[in-house]
Write a protein that binds this DNA or RNA. Structure first.
Lengths: 360, 360
DNA sequence: ATCCCGATAGACACCGGTGTCAACGCGTGA
DNA sequence: TCACGCGTTGACACCGGTGTCTATCGGGAT
């Protein structure tokens, strides 16, 4: 199985058909390049690592050989010498598939062309071996860096551990919990304000809110933003109209039903994420309410489910993929600072689940 | 005769507080173990790789030192010597987040405790650099193995490429396309039969089917199974009642609307996946039809969306995570053969979108 | 007693890179 | 003329493992 078959026609990996002096079908190594360029391997290494102490003419000769042979340095060997791999880990415990996939795609966007690869590592914060698992993962693979997303990103023990190991890390969270270089802060609060503005403009006054679990920072931020937005219009969230869900569909049904059983009931419900908003739609149907005529429902995230349910959900789009891209760039130190803030602002997406407050 | 096993999982990264003779705070290396056990590093290597040519007593002494120090061999160094990394790649182009995440979780289930890690690699079959990208990914990281899912798994060029490189691979697909050891075959056809049986039993006779794109094998298998199931009851899919969608929500709306505009319209629509079934629900609403009273809708996959829409979808559960676990075990050669077949059978999940055929 | 053999262990080179340090060529200032 | 410094390069050890080959040892056949 070691033997290789005839040279293949492949555009990117240049065929080294002519000048393979000694390397029969093997991928070229740094030694081959050194030999072909008539220099020592160390000098080739200098070129690879962009060392300034190489004469222009030498550098060009080596680069020409590299281009001709299609040489790519072996990340494993490089990693062994560097005591550090060219792998980035994504450690997460958010169970929402859409969030996970968007985050992965964003990270890969941000890492594209860097030669690094992404290793995924779901985890369970309630497991007794939680920290040991993460430590083993990071130390074994000598990860170059790690990206943490909520809610693992909110766990100080993990950050401390990574600091201690000496592994780069970036925490994605809705509030700043660490030195700025370690944080990508999502603007959940802004999204909450947008929802409030929108609902107030539609004339709604009896507003309800369903938060995610108190253990998630984003729950507080989203609610906080919503309350700020209401306050700006001289309104406030009434006692009893603000409840805690679990960011799950089922909790949306249950808490939605509770809210709709109140008298007077809310004319609009802002749910902390789309899953719960979808649950509220179900609860409304059971309660015999029409959406949006009798009840307005607004979600948060704008995941696929938002446009699949009936009526399609008005929701606050949270730019997960953009956030992921920023995290990827940040951890590789390639961040494009100017693009930063605008890209990660949430944005209200109006669909069919919202309308003017019913005239009582 | 060559000594080789995958790396093992030593969950305890024990603290080497006491006996660190010479290794101040460093992670222990094979040299440390050799020194502490009073043997050569090669003998330690033999123990790590479960070579039979080590005396019982020597082996135990070394294992004791390994356990005491919490030594874990460095995958990078090992990989360098083996000319092969301890990484498994997941190459996919299926855009459904739930599919991707379930597959990843399944793979990780199957790989658990092996010391291997999972590297994700979405790809685009229509890109001009498609094959070159995959080749670069696999060769650069010297991947131990690769798992392919539909529709990349159905591309012979990719399989040929991997064979040529000498990389292990497993293809997940709905029909066998390769040597058995390279295939995990999903039972989409069986799922189609189940849907047909169920609908016929409910009394439906005017049945419609919306397939995925013809370029996906699963489209044909799901339809084929459905037709087989009908045939077993002496029925057949009428001309014009079988249409092609794109496995997307939007195509479900469009094709659903077409079908509902027929006269007489179908009393039941079986869609090739849940996304399209959700689209059909929207189309039914636009057409003023009640589900399930006027129209029965059945999906395929049982992803989250199936239980979020209204009414909740009756659907055929496709055990993606189980399939992933099998793929993970297969690629590491740890497959538990007896559990194989039963686990990956689809299963009809009855919810609220299906009911008896309306009495015309 | 000698030879041969299988079982066991170690010496040494090697995987493909990087770090350290010394050496070299050459223009400059003393 | 010589010492000096700077820019450039290479020799060599090392990262942490594995492959190959040889050395040693005890026991059974000759």
């Amino acid at each position: 199985m070691t033997e290789r078959t005839p040279p293949h026609d492949d555009e990117s990996l240049a065929d080294n058909g002519s000048l393979d002096s000694g390397m029969r079908g093997r991928r070229p190594t740094i030694n081959d390049i050194a030999r072909l360029a008539g220099v020592s391997k160390k000098t080739v290494s200098r070129v690879i690592n962009a060392s300034p102490f190489v004469q222009q003419e030498t550098r060009e000769r080596i680069q020409a050989v590299i281009a001709e042979t299609g040489y790519v340095p072996d990340p494993q060997a490089r990693g062994l010498a560097f005591r550090r791999s060219f792998l980035i880990g994504l450690i997460y415990d958010n169970p929402n598939p859409q969030y996970v996939v968007n985050m992965q795609l964003g990270l890969l966007d941000g890492m594209r062309g860097s030669g690094f690869e992404l290793v995924v590592h779901p985890c369970d914060r309630s497991s007794p071996s939680f920290l040991a698992d993460i430590r083993a993962f990071v130390e074994r693979q000598k990860l170059y860096g790690v990206v943490l997303t909520p809610s693992v990103s909110e766990d100080e023990r993990v950050a401390t551990l990574l600091e201690e190991i000496g592994c780069e890390y970036v925490r994605v969270a809705s509030v700043s919990l660490d030195k700025p270089e370690h944080m990508i802060v999502t603007q959940d609060r802004v999204g909450g304000v947008q929802a409030a503005d929108y609902l107030v403009q539609l004339g709604h006054r009896r507003l309800a809110f369903i938060s995610g679990p108190a253990s998630f920072r984003s729950s507080h931020e989203r609610r906080g933003g919503f309350e700020d937005g209401l306050a700006a219009h001289g309104l406030k969230l009434e006692e009893g109209y603000s409840r805690e869900g679990a960011y799950t569909f089922e909790s949306g049904i249950a808490v939605g039903a509770e809210l709709l059983a109140l008298s007077p009931g809310p004319t609009a419900i802002f749910a902390g994420n789309d899953e719960m908003a979808a649950g509220v739609l179900h609860a409304a149907r059971h309660a015999g309410l029409r959406v949006p005529e009798d009840l307005t429902v607004v979600g948060f995230d704008d995941f696929q489910i938002a446009s699949r349910v009936w009526p399609a959900l008005t929701t606050v789009r949270s730019p997960t993929r953009e956030i992921g891209r920023l995290a990827g760039e940040r951890i590789l130190g390639q961040e494009d600072a100017k693009r930063d803030l605008e890209d990660r602002a949430p944005k209200l997406v109006v669909r069919d689940s919202s309308g003017p407050a019913p005239k009582t």
